[in-house]
Write a protein that binds this DNA or RNA. Sequence first.
DNA 1: ATGGATGCTTGAGGCAATCAAGCAACTGCT
DNA 2: AGCAGTTGCTTGATTGCCTCAAGCATCCAT
Lengths: 146, 146
Amino acid sequence: MTGTAFPPPTKAQLLELVAALGTAQWQDFAAAAARHGLTSVQAKLLAQLKGPVPMRGLATLLVCDASNVTGIVDRLEARGLVRREPDPGDRRVKNVVATDEGRETIRRVRAEMQATHSALDTLDEEERNTLYGLLERLRPGLEHRG
Amino acid sequence: MTGTAFPPPTKAQLLELVAALGTAQWQDFAAAAARHGLTSVQAKLLAQLKGPVPMRGLATLLVCDASNVTGIVDRLEARGLVRREPDPGDRRVKNVVATDEGRETIRRVRAEMQATHSALDTLDEEERNTLYGLLERLRPGLEHRG
DNA sequence: ATGGATGCTTGAGGCAATCAAGCAACTGCT
DNA sequence: AGCAGTTGCTTGATTGCCTCAAGCATCCAT
């Protein structure tokens, strides 16, 4: 019922489609971030801050060197979107937390991803559930790997 | 039958999942490219070269400034993966074509995206068809937008 | 043939990313 | 306690990416 059956797509075609949608969605995100004066990397870092996260944790989440995070957080902090707090349990650690303005900014960026939102709106409830289920199955293989 | 039905995922969750898989797949691609001494942007440009493409066309495909393409092609050309050819019909235009080595390199990069391949292998034929159909539906909304 | 587009490159400047090095602070061992 | 090794963060140097403004060559339309 979930509307396929026509051409049997090759694995290569599926891969290409996944790649195309991935970059399209990324560009939608980057454009929304840019409207708020953020680079896509800055926005992505901001998106990770549901609570306090140490610098090292951010480097792990963003899959990059810790020294890289220093600069990104520097620029976000200079704009008042983020704050560095000392960790009570370990004086080496600096925890990064989003300020109110930071939270509000990233909220807006997410809301303004119009292309992505309207694309998802073309699917009905059942289709979205199906898609979610399939993508859930793909996750463990793709996440944290070399 | 396509294995869902458990929790009704919110649209936000679906969006987050799409984003997570998109970046995971991108990092898989970047890692494979790095093993061949290419940056992800260089590999992405190389992946567009099924035939001769003018510099301007590459800028459009990569959604970036034309002056940016100059540098990327410079570096690829210095490695012999790409060649600039004069366009017979318009002397302003330079068409970029992949060399044999360039084609072979990008072929290998694609083949070495192990995480992505093995993730897709967890789906059976029918599930892949379903996924392909759903992603196909998402494409028009996401592709080339503001 | 002149004026306006179009295609590409150059130069300046900022962000992103990595590596090597360094300092501070924590941890474990004896 | 003390010392060694590890971990967390920053700095500096270098490279690539990216944009903008400017410039030159070529094409096209009048």
